[in-house]
Design a protein around this nucleic acid. Structure first.
Lengths: 204, 204
DNA sequence: ATAATATGCGGAGCACCGCTCCGATTGTCA
DNA sequence: TGACAATCGGAGCGGTGCTCCGCATATTAT
């Protein structure tokens, strides 16, 4: 049996070089211009024609997917490791906060995420699905312990975190409020109303 | 002295006709294609040249502003009227919900709002500033009665509502969850029995 | 009614975008 | 080394936002 290492990777040497060069340049350009960066610009700065770029990455999302895969894997792993935490609700909060910070990696990232959240078949969807499954387990565990509202599902959570990331993304002046907004939302999901431990008693 | 009724409106008769025709067509096209609608398309369907469109509305925002002004005025008035309500926190909730639904008028509207939220000088900023001031009074009143977290300001609120509108905007499949997400956030802002009652009725 | 003025019109033109297509180039293997 | 297939690169297409300016016309004065 001939070993075709990775069928998704190019075979020829020059192709492989270009593939990696594009990826590296894309990382830089997307870092500068956000997820809506000009593909022509990426090709130009990678000393590559449009055709080459498009053959390696048929869609913008396919390119983004490669840029984000590492982050997704890391978050999935973190979710798995947090699953053995003693404090399920705090574990969930910590993971979500990590997700939110990851969303700030590139401008426009929350938008790209939301667009493909429920759009199966799109490259980005596939690559973040496993991460979301792992996060879903974290959520269920916290709900099982009775500290988190039961009428919230993983998609709600993902959407809300995306939304907070989006706020900071759109209005840089609000980026400073990001952690605060995150807290507001997390408090609202908790059944222990941490915002007002005193008012909680009299509510009964 | 000749009466110059409204200096912002065109003087010549044909100009005035075009102005209104553009506005009317824009309303339709933006309704179909969202706030990112092609300006060329608007000009075409209004039987008008690009130059004409740009003279009357120098920027896309200037055009949007005219489309949205009515809604803003209505919301500002509603805020003013709600200020005499007996239940300040419920008045606030009602107004915010109204705002959220207004955000669904055009696709992409939450994005346009957030972009110009803190960017003074832009046309949209000016036109929604008064509305936000009115809303701010509603918020302060609710906080004064001790039912709403004191560490929230008007901008936070506006941003959060925008964010929820944005979620529905990006992923139509999530639009059904919009009201629910709104409830989650509002509960989190309240200092009284946050979740339990509402959480019981909604499952899944 | 006619002439003069200035106001408004419209679209050609520029630079950019995403994306496709195909002749030229180049790596690979016999 | 030669032949062949894999890969390249950019011209080209239709779209965008936006500007600029010669021309048409509404308005006003005569």
């Amino acid at each position: 049996m001939t070993e075709k290492a990775d069928p998704s990777r190019p075979q020829r040497a020059d192709a492989q070089r270009n593939y990696e060069r594009i990826l590296s340049v894309a990382k830089a350009v997307v870092g500068e211009q956000g997820t809506q960066a000009s593909l022509r610009d990426i090709a130009r700065r990678a000393d590559v024609g449009m055709g080459t770029l498009y053959r390696h990455f048929p869609t913008r999302e396919a390119l983004l997917q490669e840029l984000l895969r590492q982050g997704f894997d890391r978050l999935a792993a973190k979710a798995a490791s947090l699953e053995s935490s003693d404090e399920p609700d705090q574990a969930l909060a910590e993971w979500l906060q990590d997700l939110m910070r990851g969303m700030a990696a590139y401008r426009g990232l929350p938008g790209s995420m939301m667009t493909t959240l429920l759009d199966e078949g799109t490259p980005l969807y596939a690559s973040c699905a496993t991460m979301r499954v792992a996060a879903g387990r974290l959520l269920k565990r916290a709900q099982g312990h009775g500290h988190i509202r039961p009428d919230v599902d993983g998609t709600d959570l993902f959407a809300l975190v995306n939304a907070v990331g989006w706020i900071a993304d759109q209005a840089p002046a609000l980026a400073a409020r990001q952690e605060h907004l995150f807290t507001l939302i997390m408090d609202g999901l908790s059944l222990r109303h941490p915002a007002s431990s005193d008012a909680a008693e009299q509510a009964g």
